[in-house]
Design a protein around this nucleic acid. Sequence first.
DNA 1: AATCACGCCAACCGCGCGGAG
DNA 2: CCTCCGCGCGGTTGGCGTGAT
Length: 315
Amino acid sequence: MGRPPCCDKVGIKKGPWTPEEDIMLVSYIQEHGPGNWRSVPTNTGLSRCSKSCRLRWTNYLRPGIKRGNFTPHEEGMIIHLQALLGNKWAAIASYLPQRTDNDIKNYWNTHLKKKLKKFQTPFSSHNMTSDSAPSEHFESRASLDVSSHSSTNHRPNQTSTYASSTENISRLLEGWMRSSPKTPDPRKTATTGLESNYIGNSAAAGTTSSFNYYQPKHEQDGGGDQLISHEEFESILSFENLNNIAWGKSSSSCDSSTLNQQTAANEDKFNSIMPDKKQQRSESNVPLASFLENWLLDETTGAQVDDMMEMSPIF
DNA sequence: AATCACGCCAACCGCGCGGAG
DNA sequence: CCTCCGCGCGGTTGGCGTGAT
């Protein structure tokens, strides 16, 4: 016997939120802070269930949320973290403070899953498109601070910046009162015309580059020869290899000699793919997988990736 | 111009967890 | 202990926009 749905009461409004409702909610939260969602509908007069209010706040109105296109760095982070953590969107979102779990989940389901699936091959030693739990090989690494980045009550900005909701309100009002000029493609900057007015100040609006780790740009544009095969790149980031190389575990399919060969081959591939990182990599004196992981998780990688995408035809 | 198919994403739904009584 | 309740998470859906025919 399950709990009755919270939203099945008569008079509870569903569907898209209006600017007026947003303002009511933001005003209330600005005054009282997020939390105690049960009392929000009654105290605000909103004809919404508490859950809907919470969702609207956390996914949309919460300050510090970045909307719009994901940068290559963010995409890389999501792919990497999804492989590490599985579909723990809240945990993944904790590594991307400006993105909501819902946003990341949507982006994964609509973009990244497809991209990875497209390139999934029998060579892959790990099903990257799998929705399964993270590879148990990675479980120890997956603790990569899941605890300290715990999804629950550890949303960056959630507690510290809600006070800046005045910013949101002003944006709400600004957009609400302004006429709504239609952009040629609202999705480039926001999801709806409404959002493009009062929320869609996407910091990523100028970023148009697409993810190309697994999908070279010229292929996206209609096909052509790949300068590097998917198998090659994936083999480097092969999770079994990463696991073996970085964390010293062995698998039945990988003895030490083949592991050494694979490691050397991966080093060569890495040097050819990322020549500008060769020096940095050799100086870092860390395993390749660690280097790649650090690179992916590096705050500054986004800009580096952007640079690399301009400089190198393979990105 | 009309219709259809598809992609995208905000919002909903159901379930599990943890705290309070 | 058990039950109730509030909350958060992950999966799914519905509506809208856009491109193709």
